[in-house]
Simulated assay, not measured.
Amino acid sequence: MKSLRKYSIPFTGLALGKHDFDFEVNNSFFEEFEYSLVKKADLKCTVKLEKQETMLILNFHITGSIKLTCDKCLAEYPETVDISEQQIAKFSDEEIDEDDEIITLGKNDHEIDISGLIYEYINVAVPFIASCGNEGNTSYCDKDMLAKLNSLTGDDEGNDDAPDPRWDALKNIK
């Protein structure tokens, strides 16, 4: 978790107004999360922080590519991502139930850790079905795997042509 320390923004010394922060998100970032969907990435995260008297408004813009495994041919391929999200952090002396929309910062807090937010935004951007694109026509596709898969599904279709003799006996019942 020490490597995630660089994803903290100290806000106590910042003047009121807008401030920009840039972060590199790569393989070492995702190594800190054991069950991450993403293991390899080359991303740039720009955070535009607007400090106000009672809250912080964080606007995230994450661009780059992540390496995913195609669900069909099992080849690794790059998926381009372009994510824009906003998070609000409110200053409060009393404990308020945290929810996904507002983070509560106490009077003793002097920095905000955004590593968890970056991690969530990237993992939510992963497509439900990972596909390397135009099947068999990209340089990433495993053509041998696709050929094997097509031959297996072709054999199954061939078996459907031969009727099961048990069904013939049932047809005579009519």
Rank of each mutant, 00 (worst) to 15 (best):
S65H: 07
S65Q: 10
S65P: 00
S65T: 11
I66W: 00
I66V: 11
I66N: 01
K67A: 14
K67G: 12
K67N: 10
K67T: 15
K67P: 02
L68P: 02
L68F: 04
L68K: 03
L68T: 10
L68Y: 01
L68S: 02
L68Q: 01
L68I: 10
T69M: 02
T69W: 00
T69V: 03
T69C: 05
T69G: 02
C70S: 06
C70E: 01
C70N: 05
C70M: 00
C70D: 02
D71V: 08
D71E: 11
D71P: 05
D71R: 09
D71I: 12
K72P: 03
K72E: 15
K72C: 14
C73H: 06
C73N: 06
C73Y: 01
C73R: 09
C73Q: 07
C73D: 02
L74E: 09
A75Y: 07
A75C: 11
A75Q: 11
A75F: 04
A75G: 05
A75H: 08
A75K: 09
A75R: 11
E76C: 04
E76H: 05
E76P: 04
Y77H: 06
Y77R: 00
P78Q: 07
P78W: 08
P78R: 06
P78V: 10
P78D: 02
P78S: 04
E79R: 09
E79F: 14
E79N: 13
E79G: 08
E79S: 11
E79H: 13
E79D: 15
T80N: 11
T80D: 09
T80E: 13
T80R: 09
T80F: 00
T80V: 15
T80C: 06
T80Y: 03
V81M: 00
D82S: 14
D82Y: 08
D82T: 14
D82K: 06
D82W: 10
I83Y: 02
I83H: 02
I83D: 02
I83K: 01
I83M: 01
I83E: 00
S84R: 12
S84Y: 08
E85F: 10
E85D: 11
Q86P: 02
Q86V: 11
Q86M: 10
Q86D: 11
Q86Y: 06
Q86W: 08
Q86I: 12
Q87E: 15
Q87W: 07
Q87Y: 08
Q87R: 10
Q87M: 13
I88P: 00
I88M: 03
A89K: 04
A89C: 10
A89D: 07
A89S: 09
A89T: 06
K90W: 04
K90F: 04
K90M: 08
K90L: 12
F91G: 11
F91Y: 05
S92A: 12
S92R: 08
S92W: 04
S92Q: 06
S92F: 07
D93A: 08
D93F: 10
D93Y: 12
E94P: 07
E94V: 15
E94C: 08
E95Y: 09
E95S: 13
E95G: 12
I96M: 15
I96V: 15
I96H: 15
D97T: 15
D97P: 07
D97F: 04
E98A: 14
E98L: 15
E98N: 12
D99V: 05
D99R: 01
D99F: 00
D99W: 03
D99Y: 01
D100C: 03
D100R: 06
D100G: 10
E101F: 06
E101R: 07
I102E: 07
I102M: 05
I102G: 04
I103D: 09
I103Y: 08
